[in-house]
């Protein structure tokens, strides 16, 4: 948000894919809104819906993960520029490259670890309280999000390195 570097390659195939993925996450958020509306209105007219709580938790988590690649590709993660306000554009580009590299590592490590998490969730049979939805279902779109986060971070990294030359 406060990044002065030129926006990353938000168009192109990756850009469109990442944007579409975030929009799908927004659609999911709209679904959560609908579930909560149903819970309130349904509760008032005597057709209550007991699973709103767990659907909200699960849906929000999945939606937030779909936002991460978009956040990275469009460089929305806040930085404090105050100390580097007078630094040369080259230095700034290299510092920014460090940030992108970290995002690549973060995405990759989390992809690896949450894959293991998915296996745990499956083998132990973790499920939600009322609707008994297997928790590992939520991990599938999350892993896709993390893969896309890696790709998005690689794209911003290349962009930074170009700027540092």
């Amino acid at each position: 948000m406060s990044d002065d570097a030129p926006p990353g390659p938000a168009d192109g195939v990756l850009g469109r894919l990442v944007t579409l993925w975030a929009l799908l996450g927004g659609g999911l958020l709209a679904g959560i809104v609908a579930v909560n509306l149903w819970a309130v209105i349904g509760g008032a007219v005597g057709i209550p819906f007991a699973g709103d709580f767990e659907l909200t938790e699960m849906g929000t988590a999945v939606a937030v993960f779909t936002f991460l690649p978009y956040c990275q590709l469009t460089r929305q993660n806040v930085t404090a520029e105050i100390f580097t306000a007078r630094a040369s554009p080259r230095l700034v580009a290299w510092l920014s490259a460090v940030g992108s590299a970290l995002a690549v590592v973060f995405g990759a490590v989390l992809l690896w670890r949450m894959s293991a998490g998915l296996m745990d969730q499956r083998s132990y049979g973790y499920a939600t309280t009322i609707l008994q939805i297997p928790v590992w279902w939520a991990f599938v779109p999350i892993l896709i999000s993390l893969g896309m986060l890696c790709l998005a971070a690689i794209a911003t990294l290349r962009n930074d390195i170009d700027g540092g030359r």
């Binding site: 709580f53 767990e54 009322i130």
Partner: peptide
Amino acid sequence: TSLRIPTRTGAWVIEALGAQPVAMP
């Protein structure tokens, strides 16, 4: 009446009493 559930089987208790189970933290 609507009652907050304590556990999974607690929700069944509330249903057995003819009341409405409500989940919340």
